[in-house]
Each structure stands twice: as C-alpha cells, then as structure tokens.
Design a protein around this nucleic acid. Structure first.
Lengths: 112, 112
DNA sequence: CCATTACTTAACCATTCTGTTAATTAATGA
DNA sequence: TCATTAATTAACAGAATGGTTAAGTAATGG
C-alpha cells in the first residue's frame, strides 16, 4: 500500500475486522485481549490490526501496567470525509450544472 | 482484500493513482488513453485500476466505437460517508455525553 | 481488406497483507 | 523469586496487489 496519509487511512478501513474493532471501541476503550475475544482469529493477528489502525491514527494506545488499552481517535475519519466532500455534488440532489455538463459530454447516455 | 461492499469501496480508495483517476473524472468522462496520459505507468496498469474502481461502483464504463469511456459514480462515496457518520460524534464539537463516558471509562486519561 | 488505434488479457515478478504457531518480553501478584 | 497473564515479535505460508511486457481482440478508416 502507498504510504501517503489518505492511502493509509482508507487502507486501514478496507478490512472488516478493523472496522469491527473501531465499532467496538466506539463503546469505550478496550485491551488487546478484549478486542480479540469476539473474533475467531489469534491475538497476534489482532495485535497487527491494531498496529495498522494506530499507524492510521485511528486509535491511540496507552499502557496501564500489564494492560495495553486502545482508544478510538476519529480525526482521520474527518480527513477521509473531507476528501470525499469534493465529490458530494455528484451524489447530491443539487446536481445542476455539473450534471448537465456530464450529460452533454456523452449525449447518448442516461444516468443509471 | 475482503469482498464485502465497504471493503471493496475503501480498498479502491486506498490507492493514490485511483484517487487521482476519480479526480480527473470529476471534470468529465475520459477514455483509458486519456486517463493513462498523466501517469508514468502503463495502460494495462491503468486498465486494472479502472476495473477495481468499476467493481467498487465508483465508475461506469460505456463503449462508443473504439473508445471506452469512464464516468464517475459517486454513490459508493455516500455509502462510505454514511458508515463514517457513526463516528462523527467522536470528532464533533458536541462531544458531550459520550465524551463523559469515555473519560469515566479510564479516569486517569485526558483526550489529546 | 488490412494497417492502425484502443484497449484487455495473459504471464510473470516482486512486494505486501493476513493469517498461523512458537518464542520472547514485561508486569503482577502470591 | 517464580509462575502467570498480557501482549509483541519472529518466522513462515498462501493469497492479493500493482507493476511489467507481449500477445490477443475489436472497431475504424483508407
């Protein structure tokens, strides 16, 4: 995967296990053991998913004794959303001028 | 990559070349040749990027004679955005109740 | 028809990803 | 101090990714 910021963020979100982990963390911080429990994969596998999420800035980790807790950090989701905003006009009801431009560019085709 | 819908969408967005292609298509449809021009990679490589985008529903393709045009389809971005909405409260100013819950879950830690 | 243009498919290669099990490190607590 | 618990690191395997060049397919136009 490319190592630019958005690629790292989208890449982190491109895995259902990692998205499920974020879902769990929305209910509050959790240890690696707790995050492993709901899944049928090994702890080392979860450990590496957490590293991917951490690299993307989607979680922060803090040790308290033996336990290593992960906390959700949603700022990167905002970055991702902001990137997508650029395309919002393509799915919005207010399609207007641009829609016209596209139709004109290939007159024979209708939007599906 | 997992083949569930969101993974396919996020996976498609996790590559800078593919995001650049979407950026180009925001200005109107384009042929494979036109999409290849700005990059230093081969046409077969672009062709496969387009397949990935098509699988994600991010582009639609239509042949008109020899030319095979790609058009932006932003609906999947809306799906992705809707998934992220679930986490909006974590980056929003209106942090309120949830923020309190998180602080309580690990009293010794402050949000960064 | 036949050369050219537009694009895809095939075959290959290197790298990265996701999982495994086994070994290691670090902190606790009896 | 030493066994236990929590988690990471190491070493490995298989599949997926992203690029290449070469070959194949399809439409055009002279």
């Amino acid at each position: 995967m490319a190592d630019d910021r958005l690629s790292v963020i989208f890449g982190a979100l491109a895995d259902p296990t990692r998205r499920a982990i974020l879902g769990r963390l929305a209910d509050g911080e959790a240890t690696v053991t707790e995050l492993t429990a709901p899944f049928s994969i090994s702890m080392p596998a979860i450990s590496r998913h957490l590293k991917v999420l951490e690299r993307a800035g989607l979680i922060a980790r803090s040790r308290s004794g033996q336990r290593l807790s992960s906390t959700l950090r949603a700022a990167p989701l905002q970055e991702a959303t902001e990137w997508m905003e650029r395309y919002r006009r393509f799915w919005d009801a207010s399609f207007d001028r641009l829609d016209a431009h596209l139709r004109q560019a290939e007159p024979g085709r209708e939007a599906d």
